[in-house]
Nucleic acid binder design. Sequence first.
DNA 1: TCACAGAATGAAAATGATTGTCATTTTCAG
DNA 2: CTGAAAATGACAATCATTTTCATTCTGTGA
Lengths: 123, 123
Amino acid sequence: MNKSETKVLVALERVGGFASAQEIHRILQRGSQSIGLTTVYRALQSLLNDKIVDLLRKDDGEAIYRLCGETHHHHLVCKSCGATVEIEGGAIEKWAKNIATQHGYTDIGHMAEIFGLCSKCST
Amino acid sequence: MNKSETKVLVALERVGGFASAQEIHRILQRGSQSIGLTTVYRALQSLLNDKIVDLLRKDDGEAIYRLCGETHHHHLVCKSCGATVEIEGGAIEKWAKNIATQHGYTDIGHMAEIFGLCSKCST
DNA sequence: TCACAGAATGAAAATGATTGTCATTTTCAG
DNA sequence: CTGAAAATGACAATCATTTTCATTCTGTGA
């Protein structure tokens, strides 16, 4: 674990959720922890290898990262205004694990989002 | 449904699985169905809107498309080779509906994907 | 049939994330 | 201290995707 990897981890802790490489870079630039964008990418690769961070993809394909081991949750998003509620996914975790092992898959992850119209927008 | 959308559909039928926009373009170029790359992207957007094709992401973030069946289902995808199993989502449908109404959301949809390593790739 | 508005097309340029290059700096064991 | 190896970051390159814009098609009403 070298210096820049540590900086990236600190940034990820600060955001407390997902962040793209570019966001992490911006955050570090703002503070006194200036670090090159290239190095951010390299640090993230390395942290991925060591399974210290998780990689997901936004809808547009951009990679977003988060610390592993943070509690995993899902989102309920309003299609119209974007209001978001965080959701615990107990039921889904089990469902995903069952289905996957049932088909011989291992090293399982999953993604789930619910969308709809929030009470304000559904008038 | 215009001419280029049809061509893209035909190409997708031919591959019988996933294909990226660029692959579809290459396939059509080879045959006598020449069509511009831009148009392939536009046709895919349109087919996505009409829910005639499905969009997934490869590990590297590239978008891949395929024809989607009539029934609403979810996917169990191998992170390494892309092997896909279609899944019925009974449990999830209920979960999504419960959570959403619980928070006052209406007109509900959802998305769920499970990924892992298939038995072949997990060796 | 003709004229014309609007949609469709595609070549080329723009965009934006990610990766490669390479010269410079830091680290550290001997 | 000293040289080798690792780390760093500015910059250029790559690659999928989107935009732009000029051109071609298409259908409709006269």
